[in-house]
Simulated scan of single mutants.
Amino acid sequence: MSAQGQTTEFTLPDSLSSGRVWVAEGELQFFSLVDANGVIQLVEPSAVNPSDPSAAVNWGFVELTNTAEGGIYANISFVDFVGLIMSMKLTLGSGETQTVSGLQSGVIPTICSELKDQAAADSQPWDKLCVTDSSGNALRILSPNQYASVDPTAFSTYYDDYIEQVWTKYAGEDLTINTQADAGNVACRVNGDQLECDGDNRGYPKPTVIDIWGCNSGPFAIEDPDNDVHRAVVPRLCAAFYRTTLLVDGGNVQPGVGNSSYYTTDPTNHYSRIVHKYETDGKGYTFSYDDVNPDGQNAAGVVSGPSPTVLELTVGGFS
């Protein structure tokens, strides 16, 4: 990484799909291996494994896709962890600019302190999400779904009562999913052990905590035969569970309530609540479907558009 106040420039010579721009205070180590099919795979630094050669390095990344057909799509992601603080500004060929400011400068210890307070309040291991260096200083913060790979028993029953309340509520009234697409509003109702939605090719069993935090397993796994209704319901339903907005006033329409209602009832994901609290502009993915929002809102921290000219990354955050 360049010294404070310095700039490094590079040009992308061609299209790039599903890439990352990594920035570190120190040296990151990447490896490659050949899988069982003879395909070379990249092994990236792990934020979770304390034995990883890069475990003591402070790093972060911006996710990036840039193609001639689709233009650019870039985002700041805290889905796996919070590390080196970064922001970005996109300039398009039209002259339009878009900015995502990211987290406040020097806020990692503050977030760790609030997670410690939350752990004391509800006896859940929120404080364990904070990773420290050899001197005991906060280095990074793991998301709960990543921490679960370290301790699979953590938070295991966290949402049990909430899920039962949701199932009881929507056995007696419709949950409306606004697909924000051609399918329009879709009515869903609990029938026995599953939530069933009109026009959907299959129902949704009760999720586990891992299903909710990962949004890609159990009822939220999307398979090839699934129809357009199912593919639209999954992200909106998982986002509602993740933000625990299904029981708040107006929560019977998803997405319906705005970001002022996210993470306001317990149990909820306090990692995401606190991280969003310290984002300078409230934007940045804290889970994979943070781009699910009522029309006109954006919690995801995305910049995008055709014919990009410059993507500026700023390291260190804003005061």
Rank of each mutant, 00 (worst) to 15 (best):
A3T: 13
Q6A: 08
Q6C: 05
L16E: 07
L16N: 04
S17G: 15
S17V: 11
W22R: 02
V23Q: 10
V23E: 06
L28K: 13
Q29H: 12
F30D: 11
L42H: 07
N49D: 11
P53W: 13
P53Y: 07
A55D: 00
A56H: 06
A56L: 13
V57T: 10
V57A: 08
V62A: 05
T65A: 14
N66K: 11
N66Y: 12
E69S: 10
G71L: 14
I72N: 13
A74I: 06
A74Q: 02
S77A: 08
S77W: 08
D80K: 04
V82D: 15
G83P: 00
G83M: 07
L84M: 08
M86W: 07
M86E: 01
L92E: 02
L92H: 01
E96G: 11
G102L: 07
L103K: 09
P109I: 05
C112K: 00
S113P: 03
S113Q: 03
E114F: 03
K116Q: 08
A120N: 05
A121N: 12
Q124C: 05
L129W: 09
L129N: 07
C130F: 14
T132Y: 15
T132K: 13
D133Y: 10
L142R: 10
N145E: 00
Y147E: 03
A148S: 00
F155L: 11
T157S: 10
Y162E: 00
I163F: 01
T168K: 07
G172F: 02
I177W: 10
N178F: 14
T179N: 10
D182S: 15
A183G: 01
G184H: 14
N185D: 10
A187M: 14
L195D: 05
E196D: 06
C197T: 07
C197H: 01
N201M: 15
R202H: 15
P205H: 10
W213A: 01
G214E: 01
G218W: 04
A221G: 07
D224K: 10
D224M: 13
P225K: 09
D226K: 06
N227H: 07
N227F: 13
V233P: 09
V234H: 12
R236A: 03
L237E: 15
A239C: 09
F241N: 00
F241A: 05
Y242S: 01
Y242Q: 01
R243H: 00
L246I: 10
L246V: 12
G258E: 05
N259F: 00
Y262V: 08
T265M: 12
S272D: 01
R273T: 03
H276N: 01
H276A: 04
V292D: 12
N293H: 11
P308A: 15
V310R: 15
L313N: 01
F318N: 03
F318I: 13
